[in-house]
């Protein structure tokens, strides 16, 4: 079993996201440890991109701050390699295709393996185009995580059947960011996914309150939260550790209820 799937083996998984290099890479390394100690079961690390078309304003701004602070893909690999033996949960990159493509697939995934990454999420790489890098990623032990959206309909089955690691179920239309209401028929979609695969399903986009997390966890295997954490970092910069810990602890206990 892959390390990512194993993470889902005992109980609901809380999956936080943060943008690497915001406010700086030393802090990112520290916050990654903070996230694990607070109860994260898997951590998504964003490689910032100049034009993140699937992100709402909170993560867009974090990306631009990180890039302005001089964050590069090479420095992120170094940071991950440094923190890898201090945390035990799977680490997954989230980024856009161009930074990966431009780095060179062979070189990129070789460095992923070397740094101890477990998977990658690329929102602008749909199912039809993933042959682009699937083999190179897998050869290096990196799983390519697929997204399923409220509009996926008849595509759900084929995406789910070939899914690796876990399935990232997009809760809502549009971009990332906190929402007060999630209207998608998640239950129905999860049922369809489960009919064809036992790959775990984690739900993301819009979730920020313990109540939402609890409701989602009743249906899904994991809950993904990005913007709410990135917003804490935007607010408290170098001093966000305590607040991140408290927030993740609260969300984690909500999904365990």
């Amino acid at each position: 079993m892959s390390k990512i799937k194993e993470a889902f083996a005992d109980g609901k998984v809380f999956i936080p996201f943060l943008t690497a290099g915001d406010p700086n890479l030393e802090k990112t390394a520290e916050y990654i440890q903070e996230l694990e100690q607070a109860g994260a079961g898997l951590i998504e690390i964003g490689i910032p991109f100049s034009d993140p078309i699937a992100e709402g304003p909170v993560i867009q701004e974090a990306d631009l701050r990180a890039l302005a602070a001089g964050t590069t893909t090479d420095k992120i690999f170094d940071m991950v390699k440094g923190v890898r033996d201090k945390v035990h949960v799977p680490l997954v990159f989230m980024t856009y295709l161009n930074p990966v493509f431009h780095y060179g697939y062979e070189r990129f995934f070789d460095r992923c393996r070397d740094s101890g990454l477990d998977g990658i999420i690329i929102p602008d790489l749909p199912y039809e185009e993933r042959d682009e890098l699937l083999e190179t990623a897998n050869k290096n032990g990196i799983e390519v995580i697929s997204l399923i959206a409220p509009t996926s309909r008849e595509r759900i089955r084929s995406i789910a059947r070939d899914a690796q690691g876990f399935i990232y179920l997009v809760s809502s239309m549009g971009v990332t960011g906190m929402r007060n209401e999630i209207c998608t028929d998640l239950e129905g979609m999860i049922r369809e996914i489960r009919a064809v695969t036992d790959t775990p399903v984690a739900v993301g986009f819009g979730i920020h309150t313990p109540e939402q997390a609890k409701n989602i966890a009743a249906m899904a295997d994991g809950v993904i939260v990005g913007s709410a954490i990135v917003k804490l970092i935007a607010r408290y910069r170098e001093h966000a550790g305590k607040d991140i810990f408290a927030y993740v602890r609260m969300m984690k206990s909500a999904i365990e209820e």
């Binding site: 399923i148 959206a149 509009t151 595509r155």
Partner: peptide, 13 residues
């Protein structure tokens, strides 16, 4: 060319 877009837009495209 190709279709490098989020899953949300795939069916529409």
């Amino acid at each position: 060319g190709g279709q490098y877009i989020p899953e949300t837009l795939m069916n529409e495209i």
